[in-house]
Structure formats: C-alpha cells, structure tokens
Amino acid sequence: MRMLAIFRRELTGYFITPVAYVFIIIFLLLAGIFTFYLGNLYERGQADLTPFFLFHPWLYLFLIPAITMRLWAEERRSGTIELLMTMPIAMIDAVLGKFLAAWAFTGIALALTVPVWITANVLGEPDNGVVLAGYIGSLVMAGAYLAVGACVSSVTRNQVIAFVVSIAILFLFVASGSSIVLNFFQAFAPRAVVDVVSTFSFLTHYTAIAKGVLDLRDIVYFGSVMALALFANAVIVELKKAG
C-alpha cells in the first residue's frame, strides 16, 4: 500500500520531467542502430533477434545509470529525504518502491522495442519463444543493473557522481565476462579462477538467456544481485542519514 504510493510517485516522476522521453527516444534509437547496423540484422539473413538482445548489456551500461542516478541522490540534495524518512513507512517500502518504479519504467522502454520484433516477424519466422525468453532475460538483467544503480545513488547527493560511479561498477560486472578480461585471466590464472570471474559477470548469465535458454540458475543469479544491492541500498540510506 505505502510502497505503491512511492512506486507511483517515482514512476509518474519520470514522465512529468523530460527524463522519460529523452531516455526512451535514445534507448530506441541506440537499440535500432545496434540491431540493424552493428548487428547486421538484414545481412545475416536470419530472422531472429539475437543481435538485438546481445547489445543490451552494453546499452544498459550507460542508460540504466541515467534512470537510477536521481533515485536517492536527488532526495538527498533537495532534502526531501527528511520528509520521506519521517513518514510512517518501513525502509523496505521506500527502497522497493523506488526500485520497482525504475524497473517498471525500464520495462516500458523495453516494451516499446516491439517494432523490432514485428520487423523480424514480417521478414521471416523467428522462434518467438526465444524472443520471449530474450525479453524476460533482458528485463531481469536490467533489474540487476537498476539495483546496483539505486544503491550507488544512495551514497551521494550528486547525480553526476551517481551516474559515473554506477557506470564504473556496472562495467566491472559486465566486462568480467567479456573475452578480453577472461583471456587476461587465462594467461596466468588457473581455470577455477577464470570460471569464478566469469560467473560473476552479467554477460555470462545473460547470454544463455538471450539465446533462449531460461536457466533457473541465471535467474537466481540476477535475483541475488538485486537482493544484495537493494539490501546495501537500505543500509546505506539508514547509515547516511545518521550523519
């Protein structure tokens, strides 16, 4: 109930400022460019959305921090955190309400990419089950990005710092599964270390989902990242207001 009030305020907050529109337009533009130009959707001669989904981790790397940077930093800067934290609500209501609003907003942006899916269906016959799995995987992964971003936003009162630090931390999460980083570790570290590094990466867990393999372990991984980041978020808000 109270969480819902916070959720609604945050979600409508995106749309009463230009943030939502700027974000959605840029998200769709980049998704289109990545898919059709860099991903060579047409030239591949295959009607599937693999290139579309494979770029999401990199797209989110820059766009998700833009969604989360204001979540807590703005409350802190404007002092409204004092208003919010003296309302009769549990910390979890505030943390989850804000997080879910950001997630819902990302979901809306993601849903607006449906024309890409329609295009693929017009051009051929993609496996729509795989596409659905891709969307689910992308949304779940976005949740992990958002939770990390929200957590970073609660550390500072400066949105720019929240934005940059979020990108840096998320980059570690993403890049630890990229071939560059893994090759680097492979050069000297035992295989177990390489596996551990790769297990911590968003990429490793997402790639499987994007290919249509919905593995519970990958979902659990992203769920754990969210839970941990949001828990840290709540602790930080509680500690920081203590001065």
């Binding site: 109270r2 009030a5 609604r8 305020r9 907050g13 009463i16 404007s78 004092e82 208003l83 309302m87």
Partner: peptide, 22 residues
C-alpha cells in the same frame, strides 16, 4: 523539516495525494 523540502516537480495536489497515500 527545516527549509520545507518538497518534491518540486510535482503539482501541489499530486503532492498532497502522495503524502496522504504514504
């Protein structure tokens, strides 16, 4: 609170509705 911090982007009615809901 000191300085009367408020959610500046909200209109007054929506803000009061939010406070009531919370």
């Amino acid at each position: 609170p000191e300085g009367a911090p408020l959610y500046g982007e909200m209109v007054v009615r929506a803000f009061l509705q939010f406070v009531a809901a919370v």
